[in-house]
């Protein structure tokens, strides 16, 4: 039996700790001259990316290759989707290849859950519109675990375009699952209405970051504003009021960002290069944790086969 990873809610705290352990091993593999293990030899992983991506797609591709799986990449701009094929038909077509895992990014919320109906493969949600991005949450948690040695009790402030961020939606609930204290800081127009009913404190001023251990910045997702009232009047005013610069980061605080970063908008260029920034550590953790996730998805199936 395969396991889907569609939402961060699919994982328990114990699952996440197990993934950390697996990732520790894969980090060690990544330090070797030969960075490949035979774990998923003969398995097929399809990367179906119907929305632009650099780091997630490359991270999954490399993760699958290092596990010795066969990988194919399908991108939105070159796929039959542009010819008007429905998601159902795309998945049914891919299902004919009998893949083991489909890693899927899609511009619409819930698309990965829909895909599970048409395939026996494990679906890994690599971002569905403004819905969730559970593997980002896991790599963020793993980065925090590696940096601080624990997650319990840490205070984190997530800043910026929370409204349209699938990262924020996965992170908020994942961070809390791991015992972290999460607060949101954003212009009121970028706070998802109703989020306060999940018991999360909301602030509108960077002052609220004074006492946090980690500042997590989110990218301003202008591409999702088309045809609507823009939530902020200008990037200039946004960066002046809510942008982060080294002077606004206290000693000991760490800065994270899911990427891609917009230098000069949510953070100043010199902060991106500051050694308090964990941005590149996040990318490194991402590879290891995605290897762990691919293994986790198939762990049940692998176990059944070895018993048979």
């Amino acid at each position: 039996m395969v396991m889907h990873l569609l939402s961060i809610d699919d994982l328990t705290r114990a699952d996440i700790e197990k993934l950390f352990q697996l990732s520790d091993g894969f980090l060690e593999v990544a330090a070797r001259p030969i960075k490949k293990v035979p774990t998923l030899r003969g398995r097929t992983v399809i990367n179906l990316f119907l929305e632009p991506s650099t780091r997630t797609q490359s991270s999954f591709e490399l993760a699958a290759k290092r596990l010795s799986a066969d990988v194919i990449n399908i991108k939105g701009t070159t796929s039959s989707v542009v010819k008007g094929e429905s998601l159902k038909d795309t998945i049914l077509t891919l299902e004919s290849y009998r893949p083991d895992i489909i890693v899927m990014r899609h511009p619409q919320v819930g698309a990965s859950r829909l895909a599970t109906r048409y395939t026996k493969a494990a679906i890994v949600n690599a971002g569905d519109g403004t819905g969730e991005h559970p593997t980002q949450c896991l790599l963020d948690l793993y980065t925090i675990q590696r940096t601080f040695g624990h997650t319990e009790g840490l205070k984190i402030g997530m800043v910026g375009d929370i409204l349209r961020s699938r990262v924020a939606r996965s992170d908020l609930f994942g961070f809390r699952k791991m015992g972290m204290d999460v607060r949101l800081v954003a212009p009121p127009t970028l706070v998802p209405p109703g989020i306060e009913e999940w018991g999360v404190p909301i602030y509108h001023d960077l002052e609220a970051l004074e006492e946090v251990d980690i500042i997590y910045l989110l990218r301003m997702q202008l591409e999702r504003a088309k045809g609507r009232v823009p939530p902020v009047p200008s990037l200039r005013e946004y960066s002046r009021r809510w942008g982060l610069s080294p002077a606004k980061v206290k000693p000991g605080q760490r800065v994270m960002h899911p990427g891609p970063i917009n230098r000069g908008v949510e953070l100043s260029g010199d902060l991106a290069d500051d050694d308090r920034s964990l941005i590149l550590h996040q990318v490194e953790s991402g590879l290891a944790i995605r290897m762990a996730i691919l293994l986790w998805c198939l762990a049940g199936a692998l176990g059944e086969e070895s018993e048979a």
């Binding site: 607060r183 706070v191 404190p201 909301i202 002052e207």
Partner: peptide, 23 residues
């Protein structure tokens, strides 16, 4: 109503003055 819900949530979680308002 949204603003006061957010402000009281922030107040419960630490009582910062900035809750729901500008400094």
């Amino acid at each position: 109503a949204e603003e006061s819900r957010q402000a009281s949530q922030a107040a419960e979680s630490g009582g910062r003055r900035t809750a729901g308002k500008g400094a």
